[in-house]
């Protein structure tokens, strides 16, 4: 049984054998779990091994060592794939078919009944704004439209787990926003989403947890919230000028001041002290901004550490 674990990866490794016996260690002993209902971001620079991991999970390549299960089913089996909506990296689909025909084909491989399938095809085409192009062969689609077909075909059978390899790639800002909305909506419906990306902003916006993989090794795995909070370095606080006794705040760095406001830099550890002084000396706070190291900085730091 799966015990509420959507994805259980144990020591997954993959070595590619190149020409002249050259070996590429694309993935080394990846161990991690994704509980059901979580949105997990798999973050890593180019060539980190994200696609390699995903291809192993989908049975496209065989891992050299280790194992994994998808909702309790061993990877590589038809049953495991039955439970997943999968979007390959830079996907390509039979281009002589129209989006509608392709989605019907996909739905039938998931053994969906005809009436349900027809309804879902309709819905997902509408959701991904492909309704106008539905009858045209995929050959005539733009790159972003093909990506949208790719997303539509993952949702057609309403799976429990979504495995998406760079779902936002090739999409315009509207498309990216749409995908984020879709992922958040899936989360609301209790679905599990595992997606790879190298864009930290995408992770920050939608993920519960993030794993950072560099050179085939998992370097960090934490809740996005925790990372964000631990990244807080301090605050920028504005107070109204001309009200209260500002000399009390002299021990805090003054960033700038005008006739309207004074702006202080407050270290994270002294925030309470600051607010206490504010209320004690009848000052008035007009704005607080968090100064933090964002996920991007966190990510870059890890990547640079590995490089060193």
């Amino acid at each position: 049984m799966s015990n509420g674990v959507a994805l259980d990866i144990q020591g997954l490794s993959k070595q590619f054998k190149g020409k002249r016996g050259l070996r590429v260690e694309a993935l080394c002993g990846l161990t991690m779990q994704v509980p059901q209902g979580e949105v997990f971001g798999f973050l890593g620079p180019n060539g980190a091994g994200k696609s390699t991991t995903i291809k192993c999970l989908m049975g496209l390549i065989a891992p050299t060592a280790g194992s994994a299960t998808i909702i309790g089913e061993t990877i590589g089996s038809v049953e495991s794939r039955m439970k997943v909506g999968f979007l390959p990296e830079n996907p390509a689909f039979y281009d002589y078919l129209s989006a509608e025909e392709y989605l019907q084909f996909v739905g039938r491989t998931f053994r969906m009944p005809d009436d349900l399938l027809a309804r879902r095809v309709e819905e997902s085409l509408r959701l991904l704004e492909l309704s106008d192009a539905r009858k045209r062969p995929i050959r005539s689609y733009s790159k972003g439209m093909v990506q949208r077909v790719g997303l539509a075909q993952t949702m057609i059978h309403d799976p429990e787990l979504y495995i998406l390899d760079e779902p936002m790639s090739g999409l315009d800002p509207i498309g990216r926003a749409l995908v984020k909305d879709i992922i958040l909506d899936l989360k609301k419906r209790g679905k599990t989403v595992f997606f790879s990306t190298h864009i930290t902003d995408d992770v920050e916006k939608v993920c519960d947890r993030v794993g950072v993989i560099v050179k085939g090794r998992l370097m960090a795995l934490d809740r996005v919230e925790t990372i964000m909070r631990s990244g807080i370095e301090g605050y920028v606080v504005q107070t109204k000028a001309g009200i209260g006794n500002h000399t009390a705040l002299a021990s805090f760095g003054l960033i700038r001041s005008s006739e309207v406001f004074r702006e202080y830099s407050v270290p994270a550890g002294r925030f309470n002290e600051f607010t206490a002084l504010v209320s004690h000396h009848a000052l008035e706070i007009t704005l607080i901004e968090t100064k933090r190291k964002d996920l991007e900085a966190f990510f870059l730091e890890i990547v640079e550490n590995v490089a060193r």
Binding site: G59, R81, A92, Y94, V106, G150
Partner: peptide, 10 residues
């Protein structure tokens, strides 16, 4: 590259 999308179906 159709195989990626087809062979990964059930």
């Amino acid at each position: 590259r159709y195989t990626f999308s087809v062979v990964s179906l059930p």
